[in-house]
Amino acid sequence: MSVIAYSAARATLRSSGALLNRNWIAMRRAWILVISGAVESLLFLFAFGFGVGALVGDITLPDGTTVSYTAYVAPAILANAAMMAVLAETSINVFAKFKWMKVYDGILNTPLRPWDIALGEVWWALIRGFTYIAAFVVVMGLFGLLDSWWSLLAIPACVFIALAFAGIGLTLATLFRDWPDFDWMNAVVFAMFLFGGTFTPVEAYPAFAQPIVYIMPLYHGIELVRGISLGQLGPMMLVHIAYLMALCVGGMWIAQRRLARALYK
């Protein structure tokens, strides 16, 4: 059994790897565009972490501990960076390849299956997201926002965020009909950024708003990364990870189903 599972996994890896290779070759000429995406999150870090952070000074968390506002906001912006990088890649770019440039129509005639396409796009989005995350963590380190080597665990934590939003982005790419739909997505993402617990503890929100925040995928990502970054580990982290992984698997499953329906007419 395990031999069969192994060879099936290998075949899937090889097929999705072929799509990864395609994206790499297609985008390597536009590397400035890809790399410079990391800049946006860093700008937010400087503006809100340091600029606004200096106005706030220290912030007292619901559990009574006090941390600098900069150290409080930075992990949330890191989580946001992971989300944005992956979402841009899997939603808008996949939509363009799917409906506009018809890249998948050509791949359709090869042994690749929709699942391989979905997986290949997720690999690629993860790589792109990882470069942003790594750049961000390096900057955090340079500005003294990482107190211990444990803080580096924020990187794998971000991978869960990236996976969740890869699933969501892929599903959106297959659901959306036209470009204006992305304006709505951006509006929702922006609202999540502002209200997902980035800037203030959710416990300070009015009671009616709190359940809404708990649904937001970004909230779980922020809690996870912030918890690790501030050294406050707890069992709730497993819940966050489970929620993010469920979004990833569910999103990828729906996306490949919809891709198959649209392509295999």
Binding site: L55, L194, F199
Partner: peptide
């Protein structure tokens, strides 16, 4: 709401 009032509460 988020920055002006939310963050403002800490400033």
């Amino acid at each position: 709401v988020s920055i002006g009032i939310g963050v403002g509460a800490y400033i």
